[in-house]
Structure formats: C-alpha cells, structure tokens
C-alpha cells in the first residue's frame, strides 16, 4: 500500500439509507463459575447504531464488556434480552437463506491472527472457506481468482496463497484474517483488538489498511481496542464502555477534545503520551482498579472511583443523554454532572 494514502476517515454518509446495525438495549450475563449461581453482567443495557460507511470505535478496559458486545454484533453470542439487527433482521437467529445472508454481511476480525487461523490449512483454503460455506465461488478457477483478488486487496502477493500461516509474520497474518473477513463482501466488519497483538512497527501498516479498505469498499467498521490513540485515529464516532455500559458516545473529535464523562477524562489523562514534555500535565488520577462485573456498584457504575461522585450517583443510574443534536452528531454521556446538568 502506498504510504501516501490519506487515512483521515472519510465523512460517514448519514443518508436516508438508515443504520446498517441497530443494537437496542442488549444484555448478556454469564454464570460466574460451574457451581456458582452468581452471574457476571458482561453487557448491561447497550444501545448503538452504525451508519453505512462509518467507523465506530469502542474503547474500554478489561471487564468493560467490549468483547462480549463484539461477539453479539456478529451473532457469535445471543443476547439475553434486547436485539441486534442488521438492516432490520436479527443477526443471531434465522435459519435458511435469510439467516445466512445476514451472517454473511457481518464479519469479524480477531485479535490474535495466529490462533484464529487454522495452522493446517493453506492461505488459499483459509480465505476460500467463507466462499465455500456461502456458495460464492463456482469452480476452482473462480475460487482461486477471488482469493488472489482478496490477497491483493490487503496488500499480499497472489503467490502466497499456497503457504501456511506459520510462514507469515504477525502483520501478514492479520492481513490474511482481514482478507478472510472480506471474502463474503460484508457490509460490516467487527474488529476486536485487531492491532494490539502486532509489533509497534507493524501496527501502523494495519491501521492504514483499515482506513484504505473503508474508502475503497465503503464497509462499516466497529473497531474495538483499549488503545485510545489507535481508536481515535480510525473512528468517526467513539463509544467509551465501563462495566458493561456505555459511559459516553459521540463524534471522535468531540469525545477526545471535550470528554463529558469523568471516566473518559480519567482514561485520556492516564494514557501514556509519547512526549516527555507532557509529563507534568494536569491529570485526574483514578484510585484502585475497575470493580468486578460480578458485583457492580449501585447507581452509576463509576461512582466508586469518581472524583465528582455525590449521593445521587450511588442510588440513581444516570441516563445516557446529551444536549440537542448538533451538526457534528449527538454527543451523549451517562453522568449526572455532564453538560452542566444540575
């Protein structure tokens, strides 16, 4: 890929087409252990929409529920309640042609390309597997041609198709994983920590690839990561998760320059800055670790670590709300004290 390619996210078309993905009040909990009756509330009431051609970044720490949400978006997990709809159809259910068509349209890129690629299969067969499952290539020649086209799309040479995953570097393996996810021409790619397992000198290549693919294919991206700078770089909008809920969501530039939720503010302040002169910046330091999702605090889940917390925060869950929509898109925060609320 030429390094001169612009990766500034292209403005997401927010036309009359409506969202490609609509997530409405999804919940998902797991039993805490084999003999335990306690439940881990991994995702606890999340609603989201994804526009065509848009990149939605999701950031959060471990236990925030971001990976569980990702698995529900592609239908790998079924929500306990609430719905995940792709253009009006549920992604997790649906037998027959309609169900398959939905799943074909929403694909996933995993974090670790080494464990998500079958070591005994050639790159050709790995990338062609979704074509076979969905009957998208008729005949060996067409199958091979399509795989070579996909390899070219992600910046790999066509003659690599006969090789096995272990013959590739980490960055190349992630490109193979992306090529496989693109095989069915999906409308939505859900990427769970797609660059965090890569060496730092290789991360930028893959980040640029995502931006390039979006511009060329118009695919919508859900980009989940714990690295705030990477998420900012690729996203039109950003959602910040904390203990299974969305703490704040809004246009990327707004969330990063005017964070409305005290958790977002603390997260941004805590991120190490590759600039020694910034060491003495003022920052809000959080005490302690994130609470266990097994036993989340009452009221606002963040109140145990929040420097703004008042009595109301321990009793009342703040709604995810914001000022009237502005031209840049709605900016909402789940805090009793955001946007100068009383």
């Amino acid at each position: 890929m030429p390094p001169s390619v612009e990766t500034q996210p292209v403005p997401a078309p927010n036309g009359p087409a409506g969202p490609v993905l609509s997530v409405t009040d999804v919940h998902k909990s797991y039993r805490a252990g084999l003999l335990s009756s306690a439940r881990v509330r991994a995702v606890d009431g999340v609603s989201l929409e994804l526009a065509p051609g848009e990149t939605l970044g999701i950031v959060g720490e471990s236990g925030s529920g971001k990976s569980t949400l990702a698995r529900m978006l592609v239908g790998l997990e079924r929500p306990d309640s609430g719905s995940v709809l792709f253009r009006g159809r549920p992604v997790a259910q649906g037998r027959g042609a309609a169900g398959r068509a939905t799943r074909r349209s929403v694909q996933m890129v995993f974090q670790d390309p080494l464990t998500s690629l079958n070591p005994r299969m050639t790159v050709l067969d790995i990338i062609a597997e979704p074509l076979d499952v969905h009957g998208l290539a008729s005949g060996r020649a067409a199958r091979r041609a399509r795989v070579e086209e996909l390899l070219g799309l992600v910046g790999l040479a066509a003659d690599m198709a006969q090789r096995f995953p272990h013959e590739f570097s980490g960055g190349q393996r992630q490109r193979i994983g992306i090529a496989r996810a693109l095989a069915t021409e999906p409308d939505v790619l859900v990427c769970d920590e797609p660059v965090s397992a890569l060496d730092m000198s290789v991360q930028a290549q893959v980040v640029n690839l995502f931006a390039d693919l979006q511009r060329r294919l118009g695919v919508s991206l859900v980009f989940i990561a714990h690295d705030l700078a990477v998420v900012r770089h690729v996203s039109h909008r950003v959602a910040v998760m904390y203990l299974g809920r969305i703490a704040e969501v809004g246009p990327a530039d707004r969330v990063y320059t005017e964070p409305a939720h005290p958790y977002t503010q603390a997260l941004l302040a805590a991120a190490p800055v590759p600039e020694p002169a910034a060491r003495d910046r003022e920052r809000i330091e959080l005490k302690g670790d994130p609470p266990s999702p097994l036993n989340p605090p009452s009221g606002c889940p963040f109140h145990t670590r929040c420097h703004l917390a008042q009595d109301v925060c321990t009793t009342t869950v703040p709604p995810l709300a914001g000022p009237k929509p502005d031209p840049a898109g709605p900016h909402r925060s789940a805090c009793h004290f955001s946007f100068d609320r009383p």
Binding site: P3, S4, V5, E6, T7, Q8, P9, S169, G170, G171, Q172, D199, M200, S201, V202, Q203, A204, Q205, V207, N208, A211, D227, L228, A229, V230, R232, H233, Y256, L268, A271, V273, P274
Partner: peptide
C-alpha cells in the same frame, strides 16, 4: 525516527500514519 512517526497520537491531525515497511 520511524517508530515515532508511525504511532497514532491523542492529538494532532489524523492523517495517514507513516508506516514502516516490512517486519522486524
């Protein structure tokens, strides 16, 4: 120099990252 140029930042323009070609 290349590493410093390739990492995304929390501020500044969101232009293409100056990726380093190849792998270690």
């Amino acid at each position: 120099q290349a590493l410093l140029g390739s990492i995304p930042r929390l501020d500044g323009p969101r232009e293409a990252l100056a990726a380093i070609e190849g792998s270690p």
